[in-house]
Design a protein around this nucleic acid. Sequence first.
DNA 1: GCTTGACCTCAAGTTGACTTGAATTCGTAG
DNA 2: CTACGAATTCAAGTCAACTTGAGGTCAAGC
Lengths: 137, 137
Amino acid sequence: MKLLDIGDLSRRSGVPPSTLRYYDDIGLIKSVARHGLRRQFEPLALTQLSLVVLGKSAGFSLDEIAGMFGADGQPNLPRGDLKIRADAIDRQIGNLTVLRDALRHVADCPAPSHMECPSFQKLLRVATRRRDGKQRA
Amino acid sequence: MKLLDIGDLSRRSGVPPSTLRYYDDIGLIKSVARHGLRRQFEPLALTQLSLVVLGKSAGFSLDEIAGMFGADGQPNLPRGDLKIRADAIDRQIGNLTVLRDALRHVADCPAPSHMECPSFQKLLRVATRRRDGKQRA
DNA sequence: GCTTGACCTCAAGTTGACTTGAATTCGTAG
DNA sequence: CTACGAATTCAAGTCAACTTGAGGTCAAGC
């Protein structure tokens, strides 16, 4: 398995080298060797980075992401916690769905005040009823 | 329409007063009066806060949220932009779905290394192919 | 009319996630 | 063998989104 040096990994993942170094420092990904000074990564790191990017865009902190898929690609949380997280993401998906629909409504509804539009209110009530969607692990 | 003072709004929304003041300062929500020193809000603010909380949990910045549903409840973005945002959220939902499935896989799959598990790889490939999911408005 | 508690302002501090800059070190190409 | 370019370290800086703290104000209850 050939190694990628940091420049390659950066180019291939779209993540800047400074960020890769940062991630390496905090242990989110890990460099497996050096070529001279240059950090070398396994191709696996590319996969891990997809996960990190995905997780970040989902609003998870780097710590949370590390919990789900550690530096070695293995989670450092027990299965049960992972399922809880998966469920949290599910609620999050529900929330986003509401948000998306609300946005589409606002974009389409000709009413001057969306906040008072009954169908808009209804959308939100659903969202509010479904408790929160994000809580500590 | 009776007004809520900041304490009520805080209790009802779950958002701390300091944050409400902050949001008021930056114009994300707006207080419509004072009772003595106390900020008074319209009940509408409660609805707006649901949206804000929802948006934040979705990973949007306060600025972005303000763009979607301004302090007056009206977006300050044109319809087209809102649709673009809605589409972005749709992609985000797709990403989260992948993340959730990946997480469930990790929680369930007995294989020692998920990163090498073909079905896991497959999940991710889908995610990576679908370009990014979050870009500037 | 005075106390109390919830609010106020404003400046400064905090946290997470990076980025930037200066000074340095390599490996490769000429 | 020297120059070059791309990396390196480490400290410090930045930005968003708040929170904290000190010192002050108000209206409602007793």
